[in-house]
């Protein structure tokens, strides 16, 4: 039973991703900012992280780097509306496995997760 950590400051988006991922039988954990993401990752060691970028306290790129530093095998997929070239490049350089730009089709999320868990 794969565990996925969903990180997004919008309760609405967490609810939405939880539904999409839960329907596939995956267990979903939630965090609402980068600080919580790091804590949850350390505590639960999920198989995959879906990470938003624009968040209070700590943004997703900073959290990505912090998680990857502690665990170079961490699998993090960015899920953000901020799909500018410079941002996508920075995310990949910082170790993100993929980048899903909002708005997204649920199928895109499911396929990406399956590929990463694969």
């Amino acid at each position: 039973m794969a565990r996925i950590l969903v990180v997004d400051d919008a309760a609405f988006m967490r609810m939405r991703l939880k539904t999409v991922l839960g329907e596939q039988g995956w267990e979903v954990l939630e965090a609402s900012n980068g600080v919580e993401a790091i804590q949850m990752y350390e505590q639960h060691k999920p198989d995959l992280v879906m990470m938003d970028i624009t968040m209070p306290e700590m943004d997703g790129l900073t959290a990505l780097r912090a998680i990857r530093e502690k665990d170079p095998n961490a699998k993090v997929v960015m899920c953000s509306a901020l799909g500018q070239e410079s941002t996508v490049i920075e995310a990949i350089k910082s170790g993100a496995k993929d980048f899903i730009v909002k708005p997204f089709q649920p199928e895109r999320v499911v396929d990406t997760v399956k590929k990463q868990l694969g």
Binding site: A10, F12, M13, T54, S80, A81, L82, G83, K102, P103
Partner: peptide, 11 residues
């Protein structure tokens, strides 16, 4: 949800 719509559209 409204904030997220704005985030997506604004971004």
């Amino acid at each position: 949800a409204f904030g997220e719509v704005g985030n997506v559209v604004g971004s």
